[in-house]
Design a binder for these strands. Structure first.
Length: 502
RNA sequence: GGCGACGUAGCUCAGUUGGUAAGAGUGCUCGACUCAUAAUCGAGAGGUCGUGGGUUCGAGUCCCACCGUCGCUACCA
């Protein structure tokens, strides 16, 4: 039995979930569902990142504890993922005890291996921001760029992560097949080649974080705690055997803004602790609105719930999986979403189900016949499957979706060529044609399942099959001719009612 | 300033290590069909692959310059 471990970033709880958070989550979910279909023992982890200055301050502003603050927002993420049928096996929170143990264990090992040392950090500090600034960032060389008032020169003792000692190990890792797409790998290489510096990894100025086990005055800086969630989730620090079963075969999905942390710091931290760096990091671009990235301040956030209201869960998931190329930035367009819903879901797939169930009622007494094992559609199905499987392997959901729809479109053309509605009721000819059409629907319910979590079940039931398409196992289930025939086919309301453009 | 990404049909995008006369979906035009959610099927129009050079027998695909858009340069996917 092979295993498949996939993660999303854990989202920082200073922000409400929006489509920018949902995109990598839906992508990871679809890939996880694909691997479950393949029969892999699958671990899909998402969660929330809950420490750090911003949370502490937000809590103070709201007059609650940092944990209460984190609880509130973390719950909103869980609600959003429930809404979108996200099938995560775990939802990890960095405030969990198991995570604190894991962080302390991993970083203690790094320290014991000589990669963490005490040093002092000095710089221009803005008290209002509670943050350090570089000379370049200051206005006229002396004022905070946000508060426009003088900064102070502050020096504090910190523990430093000796990133510089790991340069050659990082280059070795980055030269391997670990960061995708290629352009993003080059970007990570560029960061290393530009010159690494040792980085301050603890804070004494706040206490909302994971305590440094060897020095009570410090907590780990939020990034050094957050990244380790990927290890915590599969047992690091609590169950080494479990951990060793999953690690290092992990697939991280991240956004390009956190490339530095996942492609430089994270592998370095693991190496420092004597562990293997991650197997794959897949970097996505941003969703843009009017050419700008989504932001709270720009009022360009879009809540998944608003779109689900218009398009349904399937319509939501399908749009982002089919239209957003994984890697480059992508412009979000409501009109594009409507067009995609109508063409692929309402017209091509939904209408296929409608016409097939109607003709089966009229010409086959509502009993679905078995397909022709030598049907011309069998070859198309095999090609579609091969292309889709290859695309899922590369994390290219849009390509996998397009490959899947090739057969669905072909089924419409096949009906057109044979015109079963003109055939004699119950004849062998009409039985064969309709059996083939039903077989395509069976196949599509499985293959589109990672995207259309609900419609795939509805199709499955409509053509008379028991159980769920998620119980099927690939590649056998994609082989042509598995629809048994003799099942009751049900005509029902349109699966995806057409949407009017607004 | 430094580093980097991107620029392919109206729109959204594919184009593996350079090599059959540039692809898909959608949109548009025309035709067919009427089982079906005014859905479906067929045919067609539509691109100097940002611009200009270079390497090569041959470049969308490598190199240089330029133009345009954008990002990063430590804590929002």
């Amino acid at each position: 039995m092979s295993r498949f471990y996939i993660t999303t970033p854990i989202y920082y709880v200073n922000d409400a979930p929006h489509i920018g958070h949902a995109y990598p989550t839906v992508t990871a979910d679809a890939i996880a569902r694909w691997h479950r279909l393949l029969g892999d023992e699958t671990m899909f982890v998402t969660g929330t990142d809950e420490h750090g200055l911003k949370i502490q301050r937000a809590a103070e502003a709201n007059g609650i504890t940092p944990l209460e603050q984190a609880d509130r927002t973390s719950q909103r993420f869980r609600d959003a993922w429930t809404l979108l049928d996200i099938s995560n096996d775990q939802f990890i929170r960095t405030t969990e005890q198991r995570h604190h143990r894991s962080v302390q264990e991993l970083l203690t090992r790094a320290k014991d291996n000589g990669y963490i040392e005490k040093g002092s950090y000095a710089g221009h500090y803005c008290v209002a921001c509670e943050a350090y600034y570089n000379d370049d960032d200051l206005i006229d060389g002396s004022d905070c760029p946000i508060h426009e008032r003088p900064v102070e020169w502050l020096e504090e003792e910190n523990y430093f992560f000796k990133l510089t000692a790991l340069e050659s190990e990082l280059l070795d890792w980055l030269n391997g097949p670990h960061v995708f797409p290629e352009g993003k790998r080059n970007e990570a290489l560029g960061i290393v080649k530009l010159g690494l510096e040792d980085v301050s990894m603890t804070r004494t100025s706040i206490d909302w974080g994971v305590p440094v086990p060897w020095d009570d005055d410090h907590v780990f800086y939020v990034w050094y705690d957050a990244l380790i969630n990927y290890a915590t989730a599969v047992g690091f620090g609590t169950d080494e055997d479990e951990f060793n079963q999953w690690w290092p075969e992990v697939h991280h999905i991240i956004g390009k803004d956190i490339l530095r942390f996942h492609c430089v710091y994270w592998p370095a931290m693991l190496i420092a602790a004597g562990l293997e760096p991650p197997k794959e990091v897949h970097v996505s671009g941003f969703l843009l609105l009017g050419g700008k990235k989504l932001s709270k301040t720009g009022l360009t956030q879009i809540a998944p719930a608003d779109l689900v209201e218009d398009f349904g869960v399937d319509g939501y998931r399908y749009h982002f999986l089919r239209d957003v190329s994984f890697g480059p930035d992508s412009e979000f367009s409501y009109e594009q979403m409507v067009a995609r819903y109508n063409s692929d879901l309402a017209n091509t797939l939904g209408n296929l189900l409608s016409r097939v169930t109607t003709v089966v009622q009229k010409k086959c007494d509502g009993i679905g016949p078995a397909p022709d094992v030598d049907s011309a559609l069998g070859k198309v199905a095999a090609d579609s499957y091969a292309a889709a499987a290859e695309a899922w392997d590369r994390f290219q959901a849009p390509v996998a979706m397009e490959a899947t729809w090739q057969l669905i479109r072909e089924a419409n053309a096949y009906l057109e060529r044979h015109e079963p509605w003109k055939m004699e009721q119950g004849s062998p000819e009409v039985q064969r044609v309709m059996g083939d059409a039903l077989e395509v629907l069976r196949w599509a319910a499985i293959m589109a399942g990672p995207a259309l979590t609900r419609a795939s079940e509805a199709i499955w039931a409509a053509i008379g099959l028991d159980g769920s398409p998620t119980d099927e196992r690939l590649p056998e289930a994609a082989a042509w001719g598995r629809y048994p025939g003799g099942l009751t086919v049900t005509k029902s309301a349109p699966l995806f009612p057409r949407l009017k453009a607004e």
